[in-house]
């Protein structure tokens, strides 16, 4: 295994951070309305400096109220989902794990449906709150059923999560087929993932959860490495394994809950970004977590930019892009880098 030094983590993070900034800049210059690239960037920097101007009112609104919040939200969600996916893969010791595997997303959707049925749902307010509560409740239920003798067993947790998720999905389908309220069908679009309602409020709401989750997981990254080499090993090396599993489960789930409630389900990011990063930089969590966060952010921003520009004025669900471009790229990595152990 390659040796990971803080300096290496720092260098790679700086590099990926620059990539992220570049992706954000490109993303705000692209859209169905043509705003010249330099003017777009000028508008952005002028507003960062607290100045008005740099373009017409229309252009300012397009850049600052649509494209920028959208890029930031997509970046946060991409970072969150990638870190959450990496954590679930380690925690459950299962390469197929993704942020939605333990039913958090289905719980969020049921919460959203209940909000719609009670008539308090809009994408901008009631619905995110209700879906967040639904997700939290699911996290607790799965945690309760997934434990035996006050210990988390990866396989029991996985089963409990998958089964709770299936049960909740059945509930979603049931509500959608029996309800005569047409609003419920909007749930289907929400389930496909949608960034078009991004605004500053959504960003401020999910930012603390994602930041907290990612930082907590990063601080435990050395222990996450140890747990992968076997729980007994980790215990012998002085790791409080149960506490570690509890913290990683809760942090990863909270990140997922926050991002689902902000923009619905976005598949694939949480699965392929961690694996790609492992293939490129190796499986050490001290490097994996920050690089997955930065690369995941860039990837989702780029995907969302494609989703809204490819067939403009029609917007594609972003999940279509993440799967269509991420899938082949991942297969390519798998084929060319097969020497590296992924988990």
């Amino acid at each position: 295994m390659k040796i990971i030094t803080p300096k290496k983590v720092f260098t790679i993070s700086i590099f990926l951070g620059l990539l992220l900034i570049l992706v954000i800049l490109v993303s705000i210059t692209l859209g169905s309305v043509n705003v010249p690239p330099f003017r777009s960037i000028r508008i952005l920097f002028q507003s960062i400096l607290g100045l008005k101007g740099g373009g017409s009112d229309t252009e300012r609104t397009i850049i600052l109220s649509l494209r920028l919040p959208r890029a930031i939200l997509a970046g946060l969600v991409g970072a969150g989902l990638s870190v959450s996916g990496a954590t679930f893969q380690a925690l459950l010791r299962n390469p197929l794990a993704d942020p939605y595997i333990l039913g958090v997303s289905s719980g969020a959707a049921v919460g959203a449906i209940i909000a719609l049925l009670l008539g308090l749902g809009t994408f901008s307010f009631g619905l995110p709150l209700a879906s967040f509560l639904g997700a939290l409740l699911t996290i607790l239920v799965v945690f309760y059923f997934g434990r035996q003798d006050r210990k988390i067993h990866p396989h029991t947790l996985l089963l409990a999560g998958v089964i709770t998720g299936s049960f909740l999905s059945a509930l979603i389908m049931f509500f959608i087929s029996v309800s005569r309220r047409e609003e419920l069908h909007t749930i289907l679009f929400w389930l496909m993932g949608d960034f078009s309602f991004s605004n500053a409020r959504a960003i401020l709401i999910i930012f603390p959860y994602i930041l907290l989750g990612v930082v907590l997981l990063y601080l435990r990254s050395r222990h996450l490495n140890l747990i992968l080499s076997g729980e007994e090993n980790a215990i012998q090396l002085g790791v409080d394994v149960e506490k570690l599993k509890l913290i990683s489960y809760l942090s990863a789930s909270l990140i997922t809950a926050a991002s689902v409630s902000a923009c619905g389900l976005i598949g694939f990011v949480g699965l392929i970004i961690p694996h790609s990063v492992r293939l490129i930089f190796g499986p050490d969590h001290r490097l994996l977590i920050p690089s997955a966060a930065l690369l995941g952010a860039s990837f989702l921003i780029a995907s969302d930019t494609l989703a809204r520009t490819l067939l403009a004025p029609v917007e594609l669900p972003v999940g279509v892009i993440t799967a269509a471009f991420g899938g082949p790229f991942f297969i390519y990595l798998l084929k060319t880098r097969k020497g590296i152990k992924t988990l």
């Binding site: 859209g31 229309t58 397009i62 649509l66 029609v314």
Partner: peptide, 18 residues
């Protein structure tokens, strides 16, 4: 000018039409 579909509006186009 087309401003998107029923379910997904193209907000940029709408803003540009003022």
């Amino acid at each position: 000018v087309r401003i998107g579909s029923y379910i997904r509006l193209d907000f940029e186009k709408i803003i540009s039409l003022n």
